[in-house]
Design a protein around this nucleic acid. Structure first.
Lengths: 139, 139
DNA sequence: CAAATAGTCTACTAAATCAATAGAATAAGT
DNA sequence: ACTTATTCTATTGATTTAGTAGACTATTTG
């Protein structure tokens, strides 16, 4: 399951994605409308900015807005950022690989091979779908 | 990611799946060979027994052995048992459904619709693959 | 039946992660 | 300067995960 933080990130992105382009939106507005605790949301938006997905303007008339094109914000990127690996086991993770403690030989581990297949299938979906797909399905 | 408990469950199942049919194996043997803490493993095996996947014999010459046919032990079943929902959000979970706090109308939520698609794709894989597939890929 | 073997159950504890909050610092506009 | 708004640091509480301890129950074998 996705953490609340990850879910909040998607809600915030969706809200910002629906706005007029390059128009700064207040954190507090996003917080209210998406029902995400404001302080918590702050750090989420900041992370999204550091990732180059959003950007912000400080001071009066400031706020956050989308920098990337919605179709370039893939689900996989957001999930990895806030939720960690897509893979179900560290030993089959592309971005967060770690060897198993108990497994002496990965090549002979059936679980490893199966989970690799699962990861590939999952990745096919989440690396293709993007914020644009979410927006398209909003009423 | 899968919890250690879930991973341990798969390792234990794999070990038991490789044994002679209906031959009881000691918890301590499984613990040693799979490098799972024995006491932790006990509760895992017990859960698998309650689920009808394994069964056990008490007393001397006792132990655990596989009850179900390996191809009937689907990844999805084991994951649900130890790790919880397959879905990424409660509002799209088949077995653990819960409505979102923040979302007033599921039908108009783009995130919901996308995550439903992701769940369906994931399910296609984990509901089809089974312990048999893991065993086939062990050397 | 008694002794040894081996699974079952209840309860607890430590560590890690997640969720949320508070408040000071910094930057920009008027 | 003053106000608005983001940025940064840091701490806290709650929950989940991982692992441990020990008493209890059931079965086999001599």
């Amino acid at each position: 399951m996705l953490s609340k933080k990850t879910k909040y990130a998607f809600h915030a992105l969706t809200y910002l994605g629906k706005q007029e382009k390059r128009k700064p939106i207040l954190i507090s507005e996003v917080a209210e409308k998406t029902k995400v605790p404001k302080k918590f949301l702050e750090s989420i938006l900041l992370d999204l900015k550091k990732a180059g997905i959003l950007t912000s303007k400080m001071g009066k008339g400031g706020g956050y807005y989308l920098l990337k094109d919605p179709e370039d914000v893939k689900l996989a990127e957001v999930i990895r950022m806030f939720n960690g690996p897509i893979a179900l086991l560290p030993c089959v993770s592309l971005n967060y690989y770690e060897p198993c403690d108990e497994c002496t030989d990965e090549a002979s581990c059936g679980l490893n091979k199966i989970m690799l297949e699962v990861r590939d299938e999952t990745l096919k979906v989440v690396a293709k779908k993007s914020l644009k797909d979410i927006l398209n399905r909003e009423e």
